[in-house]
């Protein structure tokens, strides 16, 4: 199986990148190909990078409270490019009601503080295996 390609991105103006960097390193150590965008990215910059880098997964990290604006925006832009096969997942400080609302509109799982990195690695691997099976 080819390695899973993941874009780890920090949308918006929030500068908290400890989680994003720890996750990026953990995914890399788990054998994935990881691209990290750096801070202060617009949804447009993230969608463009995702398409150009032909990633399987976009991992968004948001601790600023702007998730209800930024996550759907990334999703719309990626879909507009016909790439609704890309998994959009992520984490941060996101209240449960908002997590439910975002998952309802087709966003993947959103992980809160204290999640072991093994849990999200497993989630991404399972999602990828299922997608590959469907495509085969």
């Amino acid at each position: 199986m080819r390695p899973i390609r993941v874009l780890v991105a920090k949308p918006g103006l929030d500068g908290h990148d400890r989680g994003a960097k720890v996750v990026a390193a953990a995914l890399r150590d788990a054998g994935m190909e990881v691209i990290y965008t750096g801070l202060h990215q617009t949804p447009e910059m993230i969608a463009t990078a995702a398409i150009q880098e032909d990633v399987d997964v976009i991992g968004l990290s948001i601790l600023s409270g702007a998730h209800m604006t930024l996550i759907p925006r990334v999703q719309e832009l990626v879909r507009a490019q016909g790439r609704d096969d890309i998994l959009i997942t992520g984490g941060g400080i996101i209240p449960k009601d908002d997590v439910d609302a975002l998952e309802h509109r087709g966003i993947g799982r959103l992980f809160g503080p204290g999640t072991p990195t093994t849990e999200l690695i497993e989630y991404i691997k399972e999602w990828f295996a299922t997608r590959e099976k469907q495509e085969a």
């Binding site: 929030d14 600023s64 209800m68």
Partner: peptide
């Protein structure tokens, strides 16, 4: 250093 009505501020005004 962005004003509340700057495009980069969208969705973030008064949040944190």
């Amino acid at each position: 250093g962005y004003d509340s009505d700057h495009p980069r501020s969208e969705g973030e005004v008064g949040k944190c």
